[in-house]
């Protein structure tokens, strides 16, 4: 496969509970020369709730778009727009994903074992609200503009992130557990960013507070205990050293914890 393949049709096929044979006949797009599912995949099994995509690569785009219940496991990489507007269930990519994955996420869980591209959990073009619910865990690095306009939910990135994470964030929680983040939380209104190492912030935009025992932090840690062991260990091993509030430019009252 040299060219992008539009996988958004997957949800509709699963929802319609059509037979495997019929599913293989479904056209993947409305182009006249469109491929059928069967041209690329062999459909087998009976479980509509647990989909496994084998031998996936970065050209399969939009896997898990609008996904509501059940799991999708992607063996290999996935392309851009993975889990776009996902509403429930779990999408697990055992590799990297492309740009704008988890865009407009509205519930459920997206787990990425390797890296994610730009605009992870960001807003769809023209939408005022980005990720609105749900959880994204990236075990590798993530690109720029992560969590743009995010409103609710949780994003955790174990590795490094690109410039402008949590730009125009409305609310929600983002954990940046890797290296230094560049200009996170610009124009953030509310929300919590937790940085494992001191981020590069515009000094005029954020006010630094001394952070001594924070009740909410404890609640958050005990919540994370139920979610993911590795993150929980990181959080518990250190308590927040600093708290920044901002973005003052827009009278924001978001917070950035440095642990």
């Amino acid at each position: 496969m040299d060219f992008p393949v539009d996988m958004r049709i997957l949800k509709k096929i699963v929802d319609s509970r059509m037979s495997n044979k019929k599913a293989e006949q479904v056209l993947m797009s409305s182009r006249p020369d469109a491929l059928r599912i069967g041209d690329l995949f062999k459909v087998s099994g009976k479980d509509h709730q647990n989909i496994v995509i084998e031998n996936s690569n970065a050209k399969l785009e939009g896997i898990g778009t609008g996904w509501k219940r059940g799991t999708i496991k992607v063996i290999g990489n996935a392309g851009s727009f993975t889990a776009q507007s996902q509403r429930g269930g779990c999408v697990h990519v055992e590799g990297s994903v492309g740009d704008f994955s988890g865009c407009g996420l509205n519930g459920g869980q997206l787990v990425i074992d390797a890296d994610a591209g730009n605009g992870l959990g960001a807003s769809l073009p023209g939408e005022k609200i980005g990720m609105n619910e749900g959880r994204i865990v990236v075990k590798g690095n993530a690109g720029s503009r992560l969590g743009n306009r995010m409103r609710r939910g949780l994003i955790a990135v174990y590795g490094d992130v690109g410039v402008g994470a949590c730009c125009s964030m409305i609310s929600g929680t983002v954990l940046l557990l890797g290296g230094q983040a560049n200009l996170p939380g610009t124009h953030m209104r509310r929300g919590t960013i937790i940085c494992a190492s001191e981020p590069s912030l515009s000094a005029d935009s954020f006010f630094e507070q001394v952070c001594k025992d924070n009740t909410y932090w404890n609640i958050f840690c005990s919540y994370m205990e139920g979610c993911n062991e590795r993150i929980h260990q990181t959080l518990l091993s250190c308590s927040p050293r600093k708290r920044f509030v901002g973005d003052l430019k827009i009278h924001g009252m978001g917070e950035i914890f440095v642990i």
Binding site: R190, T192, I219, F220, G226
Partner: peptide
């Protein structure tokens, strides 16, 4: 200035 946080 109150903050709402939804955990789970």
């Amino acid at each position: 200035y109150q903050i709402s946080k939804k955990l789970g």
